[in-house]
């Protein structure tokens, strides 16, 4: 098994684990962690497959994409965490509430 395939499979595994946790768990912090793990999975796939060049140097375009992705993810995470704290104050717990108030 070669390196590119191994790490892309790990990437797919991380994506699936994250997706499972995102759906199953109610606590918002855990959902946010799950999104981050999913993101890491996608990034791992992008970079691992970039190693399939004939030269020792990998393809740099996915590297740049992932750096962009990491920055976008931290921005989204910061917003999500702030929103979570506010939701926790309103709902008295860090979970989404289903019933709307009158």
């Amino acid at each position: 098994m070669n390196t590119a395939l191994l790490y892309s499979l790990v990437g797919i595994g991380l994506f699936s684990l994250g997706l499972y946790a995102l759906i199953v768990h109610a606590h918002l912090l855990r959902k946010i962690l799950a999104i981050n793990v999913m993101g890491s999975g996608v990034f791992l796939l992008l970079i691992a497959l970039a190693k399939r060049t004939a030269t020792p140097l990998p393809d740099a375009v996915p590297h740049a994409m992932v750096i962009t992705g990491i920055v976008v993810t931290v921005a989204a995470t910061a917003l999500a965490l702030t929103l979570m704290v506010r939701v926790a104050m309103e709902n008295h717990r860090a979970e989404l509430s289903d019933q709307s108030q009158e």
Partner: peptide, 12 residues
């Protein structure tokens, strides 16, 4: 409360 819950669900 409704808007914050709606926004959080939307964000996820």
């Amino acid at each position: 409360r409704d808007a914050l819950n709606g926004a959080m669900r939307y964000l996820l």
